[in-house]
Nucleic acid binder design. Structure first.
Length: 256
DNA sequence: ATGCCGTGGAAACCACGA
């Protein structure tokens, strides 16, 4: 069974690329972020035509998250991250898919830092960590995946010294990620490739992809039930090289 | 050192991204 995550950077602008990748990669479960489409503009039919049952939480212009299921065995649990009724961003959707709790998240960017956007990022991180603790306590199969907007360690950045003051790599941000991980979650890609330089994002400019000037910011966090079933994990690096690609590449895991 | 590119929405520029 294959589960994938992909920050599409505009689900409608990205539709040909998304459909091509879905056909090629054929994941069983897909988490999408940055739909950048209101609820009624989600390309539901095109995705159903490929055999996927989608749930999604759209938003005009920004954010937006979705989960696609090939089996159709998908039951939505929530479409808001608990803890702040004032938060209107569509950044979290969670469903039970094929017996697994799948949390699909788009953690705030947080730049410029310091500032209100960085404060929002850290608060969102705390809410995620609280929610993750509740899921952890259930002692069931859980996957928390998506765009975390964090490079966890120096190996995850092409030039760490240039990013130390950036919201994606500041000590507070890395500490927040570590605090979440300290609950016991497994970083699936890093577990299977402990020393490899692996990126999931490359800027559109300065030929970042061609220079491999990338960041690893899209992650798979696994509860122990999934961790012990983990057999493979990777990045569909080549998709970033396609015409009209997102600035992110899809990331995936395989479990038995 | 830097949104230099890309997307969406509104209105021929701006917000936002990482």
């Amino acid at each position: 069974m294959k589960i994938a995550t992909y920050n599409v950077n505009g689900v409608n602008g990205r539709l040909p690329v998304l459909l091509r990748w879905l056909e090629e990669s054929a994941p069983d479960v897909v988490c999408l972020q940055e739909l950048k489409a209101p609820q009624e503009k989600f390309p539901e039919q095109a995705i159903r035509d490929l055999g996927y049952t989608p749930i999604w939480h759209g938003q005009k212009s920004w954010n937006g998250v979705a989960i696609l299921s090939k089996s159709g065995d998908i039951m939505e649990m929530t479409r808001v991250l608990p803890g702040d009724p004032e938060d209107t961003h569509s950044r979290y959707i969670e469903a039970k898919v094929d017996g697994i709790i799948v949390g699909c998240l788009y953690l705030p960017n947080g730049n410029p830092a310091p500032g209100p956007k960085f404060d929002y990022k850290l608060k969102w991180f705390e809410r995620l960590t609280l929610h993750a603790a509740e899921l952890w306590a259930l002692d069931i199969p859980v996957v928390l995946t998506g765009d975390y907007n964090v490079m966890p360690t120096e190996i995850d950045v092409y030039k760490p010294e240039r990013w130390v003051n950036d919201a994606l790599f500041r000590p507070e941000t890395r500490a927040a990620f570590q605090k979440l991980m300290s609950q016991g979650w497994t970083d699936a890609v890093r577990k299977l490739h402990p020393d490899e330089v692996i990126y999931t994002f490359w800027d559109y400019f300065r030929q970042a992809y061609e220079r491999n000037a990338g960041l690893r910011i899209d992650h798979f966090l696994l509860s122990p039930h999934i961790d012990k079933r983990l057999v493979n994990a990777g990045v569909d690096h080549h998709v970033r090289g396609w015409e009209k690609s997102s600035d992110h590449a899809p990331v995936w895991i395989e479990i038995k």
